[in-house]
Amino acid sequence: MTDVRPPVVEAPVGGRQDGRGSHAPDQPRIDRVTVIRPAPRWPHLDVRELWHFRELLFTLAWRDVAVRYKQTAIGIAWAILVPFVTMVVFTLVFGKFANFPSKGVPYPIFAYSALLPWTYFASAVGLSSGCLVNNKPLVTKVYFPRVLLPLSAVSVPIFDFVFASIVLFGMMAWFHIWPSIALLLAPAFLLMALTTALGTGLFLSAVNVRYRDVPYAIPFVIQIWMYVSGVIYAISALPERWQWVLALNPMTAVINGFQWGVLDTAAPPLDKTLVSVASMLVMTVVGLWYFRRSEPKFADTI
């Protein structure tokens, strides 16, 4: 019986009222004219539009945070467990056994203070590179600036970072280490990690739309990247020549800068930090450019 549908509404359509006057009074008037045209050859970032969609950015980030540890047994404790256990393993293998250089501070706190920004970065790259494919229903059904997806993805692991920092403060008390005044610069270095992750994520997420090789490459890329970021050994102990090469990796500056703040180790050399900043900017611009250029085809190819 349910398959038989009576006509929906008997009233004729002619009884429509005239124009705008009949709009519901509570309706916000948006007098925006939307112009639809072919994708431009040279993409640019529409900042005004991003601002218009700012609420959606927060909503998406909030969703991912709310969902992140749903139906897990230990929940957000994962945010501590991963860097902590990694630190213990590193300490046993590299600290005790291989005796890697650790800037003159105890190896455990050297490793943990490096693992904090590094774990954030690795999560942010992982989440943002999958953000388009994982949100396929959104990408194929509704319009919004797609940049919001990687942007919200790199914001999500900040919560893990903040949570795992509690353990860092505990360890600092244990080892009697006082932060330097440069701790005030830590947010700037974290922002640098975020921007680098964003640039990488923009690029990889757009590539992922076409080539599903990306999820296979990510763990491997992240692992190699860690070895050249100064997480398990102090970059400053390397020959000068190699320090310059590694400065091209913005994460070296992030980790050096963060340790400078929390462990009061030597300040990262300014010239090499500037190289890192420049490298970060190039990565971000290239990532953004590629993302924006691929954006018009996302819904067709995903």
């Binding site: 939307t34 112009v35 639809i36 045209r37 072919p38 994708a39 194929t140 059904k141 509704v142 319009y143 018009p296 819904a299 067709d300």
Partner: peptide, 9 residues
Amino acid sequence: RITTPTRGR
């Protein structure tokens, strides 16, 4: 605006 046109406006 889910996809862009190849031509037109």
